[in-house]
Amino acid sequence: MSLWEYANPAKFMALSARILPILAIASSCLLLIGLFWGFFLTPADYKQGSTVKIIFLHVPSALMAINAWLMMLIASLIWLVRRHHVSALAAKAAAPIGVTMTLIAIATGAIWGKPMWGTYWAWDPRLTSFMILLVFYFGYLALWEAIEDKDTAADLTSILCIVGSVFALLSRYAVNFWSQGLHQGASLSLDKEQHVDNAFYFPLLICIAGMVLLFITLVLIRTRTEIRSRRLLALRLRNN
């Protein structure tokens, strides 16, 4: 049995119906535990005070903002190469969630930025990159809305997503030449020296895991909706 079988809409609907409740429960448990631990059971930072605790929302949402696009990229490639309808619809379903994650990341960043840097917004490379990511999401969504034929829309948004990924990456590195950063370095990395302290590390990991599961849950729900609306369209066409 291959993974590709679930590219069939009916099979995908059956499978996703079974795993959705599990995913929903798991993600809400992880997020509740992670956020509770992070907000109430961790010490305040010696420099940043309690403001640091917004990290438990900021980092996971920022990660998912980028990973949502990455997921769309992979789904788009699968659609263009193997032409599985579910894949194209999953990419479409992920985009609004990506927008929300990006907005959360920008908003929490701004709230954190005010006490730390004295301003809600600065044209820092990382902040700017997220703003750019946001307009890429908007363009992608607008293109989906503008095209009537669903398969053409899937083709065109997929190719836009792929080309957009390259240019989003280019922008990410181009901004480094354009402005000096205020943003702190990576919170998590393979290089141990750079890590946040262990007291923050574990609740942060739990929050991230919770956010990943939340993202998958939402994508599944939205993909199911998209599949249903495509089925409605197909039924209408057949009865005409």
């Binding site: 809409p9 009916a10 309808h85 089925r231």
Partner: peptide, 10 residues
């Protein structure tokens, strides 16, 4: 079968 979205029941 003309459309993959018409297959099966859901």
């Amino acid at each position: 079968k003309t459309d993959p979205f018409l297959e099966g029941t859901f």
